[in-house]
């Protein structure tokens, strides 16, 4: 696909130094994988474990990574699979899904932290209204700043589909905001 950017050429699969390689991947993309897991319903208490599972898989399969879809798209696929496994296990164990885990409690008090939490709450409220497939595309494109081609590779859909999901998600988000304004106007 012509739109795919060649990403992270420095992390090629043929790197002779697997130590540096896995470290480099974690350093560069650890936070991304973490967020992806959280957004896929892995709770705050479990995400560290699941992230490690993801990177164990990465470690094992690094030799198979062909670089075509971009590192983040590849990682996202692994993370999504692990998150799904985790959700299944969580369901079996605790008989409750972890779709809406409680947020970590950063100590309040700092204006910046408070603002950030408010922004986060607003953002999550809006995202929560989207259906998961649109949300995934929206998050990867708008929040994670992946190219649309990368997004398509990550979620495993044609570029065209990713495009229309993004447009549709955007329209819904705009509508949410408009509703929010309307409510604020009334109150």
């Amino acid at each position: 696909m012509e739109g795919v950017r060649a990403l992270e050429p420095s992390i090629a699969c043929t790197d002779p130094n697997p130590v540096m390689n896995l470290q480099a991947i974690v350093a560069e993309h650890g936070a991304f994988v973490w967020r992806a897991l959280r957004r896929q319903g892995v709770g705050a208490a479990d995400v560290e474990d699941v992230a490690q599972e993801v990177f164990l898989v990465v470690h094992r399969r690094l030799a198979d990574y062909d670089g075509r879809s971009g590192m983040r798209a590849w990682l996202y696929g692994i993370a999504a699979k692990k998150a799904s496994e985790h959700r299944r296990r969580a369901w079996l164990r605790r008989e409750r899904p972890v779709a809406a885990p409680p947020e970590e409690s950063a100590p309040p008090g700092q204006p910046e932290a408070v603002r950030r939490r408010e922004a986060q709450a607003q953002l999550e409220a809006i995202l929560g209204e989207l259906d998961p497939r649109k949300r995934d595309v929206f998050v990867l494109f708008e929040l994670e700043e992946m190219s649309l081609a990368e997004v398509a590779a990550a979620v495993g859909c044609p570029l065209q589909t990713a495009y229309s999901r993004l447009q549709s998600a955007r329209a819904l988000v705009q509508a949410s905001i408009a509703r929010l304004h309307a409510r604020e106007g009334l109150s």
């Binding site: 936070a31 959280r38 992230a51 603002r115 950030r116 986060q120 953002l123």
Partner: peptide, 8 residues
């Protein structure tokens, strides 16, 4: 501001 909130 909100996008990193779920990060590590």
């Amino acid at each position: 501001e909100g996008r990193d909130a779920l990060g590590p």
